[in-house]
Amino acid sequence: MLILCLVFWLLGLGLQAACEPKMLRFARLPDLTLPPSVRWGRFIFPLLGLVIVFWSNPVVAIFVWAGTFSLAAVIVAIVWASLARVLESRR
């Protein structure tokens, strides 16, 4: 349950990073201009995660959802920084 919620947050925040011009500039990536249906994933994936944790165990749902958001944010930030470093070294 926790892992699944984490995966949903990773997907949501990954998409958020890919839609954020400042993040794209940092990684020196071109503007990806994702289709709107994909961009909606930024909001849908976290909500799916919330539904799953509530369905699994409502008592811990908010704690797990907030905690996995924090963990996913750190993972996405580190992966994005590594990606930017790799792309920079290739140029």
Binding site: L13, Q16, A17, E20, K22, M23, F26, A66, G67, F69, S70, A73, V74, V76, A77, I78, W80, A81, A84, R85
Partner: peptide, 28 residues
């Protein structure tokens, strides 16, 4: 929120670390 530049200037890098360790963990 997701911006960390560990290889930028030292103050910038530390600021990014500070923000990354703070903002996502504000609820906690």
């Amino acid at each position: 929120l997701l911006l960390v530049r560990p290889f930028a200037a030292r103050l910038r890098a530390w600021l990014d670390v500070h923000i990354l360790a703070s903002v996502p963990f504000i609820p906690f």
